[in-house]
């Protein structure tokens, strides 16, 4: 079955992204397709490469990266939500004249249309939030 996942909360503050991660991993391991993981609201904070948790804690950002690399997963941060919260890739840095970027590959920044498209094309949309 083709699934998509929406995540509304940032890492560490709320369990939503942990739950979404374990759900997504289980779906992939059980042979389902995950078309897209869409990060909205504070969820975009999952995509910064500057995240540095203490060594005895899980690394939520790296965990997404590893899952994405293994399964070629599409990790999308909403551009409007990302701009508000200071998540910047090369394109956004150039457009908004910022002197730094902080996005972690393979996360990508794109529009809300990606969420709508995922909802249309997937058999199920599963939302994780506060």
């Amino acid at each position: 079955m083709k699934l998509s996942v929406q995540i509304n909360e940032g890492p560490y503050q709320h369990q939503a992204t942990d739950t979404a991660y374990h759900f997504t991993k289980a779906a992939l391991e059980n042979g389902h397709e995950v078309m897209r993981v869409f990060f909205y609201h504070d969820g975009v904070l999952n995509g910064t490469r500057l995240t540095t948790p203490p060594q005895d804690d899980r690394h939520i950002v790296n965990r997404w990266v590893e899952l994405a690399e293994k399964y070629n997963l599409d990790l999308v941060l909403c551009v409007a939500a990302a701009q508000r919260r200071g998540l910047v890739d090369d394109g956004e840095a150039e457009r908004n004249k910022k002197n730094a970027t902080n996005i972690q590959e393979p996360f990508r920044i794109s529009g809300l249309g990606q969420l709508i498209e995922a909802a249309i094309q997937s058999d199920r949309l599963v939302v994780f939030g506060d």
Partner: peptide, 11 residues
């Protein structure tokens, strides 16, 4: 249920 069970419920 575990996470696999969660996925199964969704599907």
């Amino acid at each position: 249920v575990d996470y696999a069970g969660f996925v199964e419920l969704v599907c």
